[in-house]
Design a protein around this nucleic acid. Sequence first.
DNA 1: TCTGGGGTCCTAGGACCC
DNA 2: TCTGGGGTCCTAGGACCC
Length: 396
Amino acid sequence: VFVPTEASVLHADLDSFYASVEQRDDPSLLGRPVIVGPGVVLAASYEAKACGVYSGMGANKARRLCPDAAVVPCRMEAYSEASKAVFEIFEDTAPVVEALSIDEAFLDVRGMEHFAGTPPEIAARLRRRVRAEVGLPISVGVAPTKFLAKVASAVAKPDGLLVVPPGRELEFLHPLPVERLSGVGPKTAARLHDAGLSTVRQVAELPETQLVDMLGRAVGRQLHALAHNRDPRRVQVRRRRRSIGAQHALGRRSRSPEAIDATLVALVDRVTGRLRKARRVARTVVLRLRFADFERATRSRTLGEPTDRTPTVLAAARALLDAAQPTIEERGITLIGVALSNLEDAGGRGQLVLDDRTATLDSTLDELRERFGTEAITRAVLLDRDEAPVMPRLPD
DNA sequence: TCTGGGGTCCTAGGACCC
DNA sequence: TCTGGGGTCCTAGGACCC
């Protein structure tokens, strides 16, 4: 049985992150509606949200709703840099930080009272530091569980701090709409509404079996637990990425098979490059398609051996695309994507042996040169455990 | 609501194995 | 010829999240 003892989980979430970075870097945008685009709204400042603009909305519609808005292009490098600076403050604030995305994280601040203050004090200091050192507004929720901390930060927005005191969790939770429960999106919300349930309290009053019958085992159990504020998840450093993908929207115009293939080649190149950079190998190649009616489909193929090689992945992706060609011709295609899953570590699967010195399979050329004390290495052949030659796993 | 790009987890059926 | 119970892996789709 999980008994939360103190409000020691922080959920920290930057407000309108991309838009706030733009406002920070261009003071003329301060106080004005800002939309980060183009094409689709990636982020909207609170001034723009006030006009009804939200992320995911088409930029044209956003302009109509908010004609005064400054529409600025996405500057991913700036956001990554800001994110890094904020996460350094997170790491400095708590021993355990669980990153959820580029702009939010859970922090576990249990047992820090005697040297860092109470959780609300720590949260307030964190907000001040992010504002002073990175120049960005951030909202923080403090609660005994991750779920409640996240709800609290959302309610605290913008630029707020909300503490849910132990003992009063249900008082806080039960009046909220079901949409606040994590795992409730448009479909599940519609089903709950159809059943006459609109608040968390009403969900909490239902027996678990009834929720499971309505929503399936996993979702039903989860909602039942969350509605009673049962959330045993610990704050923990994130597991490694389980898939890496890239996709590209094609618009409504019909495309020649050659043009589609060219897009596929570019996607495979990008995704295998990221795979190698992450020192991973993948065993499953997934082709993602979206048709003219916006229905989606996936086709996948699992290889016998994990790989990070562009030609191997490309061959698999092309085979999947070829097999889907009749469907594509019939239904039209508006998006193509490639994802790699079943990831494994590239390292540690073998060794490079030269004289009496060795290096692991995933060594970079520079590491090899240092290890073997020579600049002369230009090429290496690697042997796996069974001493079968494998492709050199050196930088391209 | 005329819809980008990057992810996660769950479900269910079928193949295959013992 | 008909047949149980348990497990793993693969494929495909669905829902959700930021």
